[in-house]
Simulated scan of single mutants.
Amino acid sequence: MHTLQRQPQPQAAFLLHSRPYQEHKLLVELLTAEDGKVAAVIYAGKSAKSNKKALLQPFLPLTVTLKGKSQLKSLQTIEANGKSLLLSGEPLYCSFYVNELLVRLLPEQVPCPWLFERYQQTLLCLAEQGVDQQALRQFELALLEELGIGLDFFALQSIQTDTVSFNLDSGFTEPLSSLPTYSKTALLAIASGEFNDKANLYTAKTLMRNIINQLLGNKPLNSRSLFDKK
């Protein structure tokens, strides 16, 4: 008796990265609503004006259908699901930064619908309000939680010192000479969602950068160089 195979269903997606792959094909990395981050191959056509190539742009809401049982999928259908978000200057650089974080750190084919929603909200915020440090920090926190590195801010209450360190293995600890230190007061404010204070935002940015650098190892993010060239 043959079992019926479930037909691939269309789903919302965004392009994170693309590069040439064999003749007239592209290898793309997508963030999808149902399947998380997915690598797929698409036949883009011979013409530089191919409709598929025109759709394969970052920050354009898409609807895609993916086919295949292996890790590398085939991008069966693709169409626009809205207007491309208008990003330029520093908001554009921040959006490239968000995309690169996902490409570098998010595992393949692990559903993360909540992170997909946060990604959409972050891009929309950058497009409508310009650079928003609070939105970026909240996205980074959401990504860390998806990676299993949720920050246990409650642990701060049992630490008696005014400053603390953070270790990927043990979380927040009393100050360690081998690690950066952070204001416990600022961290408790961040835990309560109080990002408006400049000191709190600076603490959050420094903490996120140090944690992400540890996760990246010795391979820096290319998108950060865009800010250096500004």
Score class of each variant (00 low, 15 high):
Met1Phe: 12
Thr3Arg: 14
Arg6Ser: 09
Ala12Arg: 11
Leu15Gly: 01
Leu16Glu: 03
His17Ala: 09
His17Glu: 10
Gln22Tyr: 09
Ala39Gly: 12
Ile42Gln: 01
Tyr43Cys: 02
Ser47Phe: 04
Lys52Ile: 15
Lys52Cys: 09
Ala54Pro: 00
Gln57Trp: 03
Pro58Ala: 07
Leu60Met: 08
Pro61Asn: 04
Leu62Ser: 04
Val64Gln: 02
Val64Thr: 09
Ser70Lys: 05
Leu72Met: 12
Thr77Ile: 03
Thr77Asp: 08
Ser84Asn: 05
Gly89Tyr: 01
Glu90Ala: 10
Pro91Tyr: 04
Ser95Thr: 01
Glu100Ile: 12
Glu100Pro: 08
Leu101Ile: 06
Leu101Tyr: 10
Val103Leu: 12
Val103Pro: 10
Arg104Gln: 13
Pro107Arg: 03
Glu108Thr: 05
Gln109Asn: 11
Val110Tyr: 09
Cys112Ala: 15
Trp114Asn: 13
Phe116Gly: 01
Glu117Gly: 14
Gln120Leu: 07
Leu123Tyr: 00
Leu124Met: 07
Ala127Glu: 00
Glu128Phe: 06
Gly130Met: 02
Gln134Val: 02
Glu140His: 05
Leu144Lys: 02
Ile149Cys: 11
Gln160Val: 08
Ser165His: 03
Asp169Val: 05
Phe172Leu: 05
Glu174Thr: 10
Leu179Cys: 00
Tyr182Glu: 02
Lys184Val: 02
Lys184Phe: 03
Thr185Lys: 14
Thr185Ala: 13
Leu201Asn: 13
Tyr202Arg: 09
Ala204Gly: 12
Lys205Arg: 08
Lys205Ser: 08
Thr206Ile: 04
Ile211Thr: 07
Leu216Met: 11
Pro220Arg: 09
Ser223Ile: 01
Ser225Ile: 12
Ser225Leu: 15
Leu226His: 06
Asp228Val: 14
Lys230Glu: 12
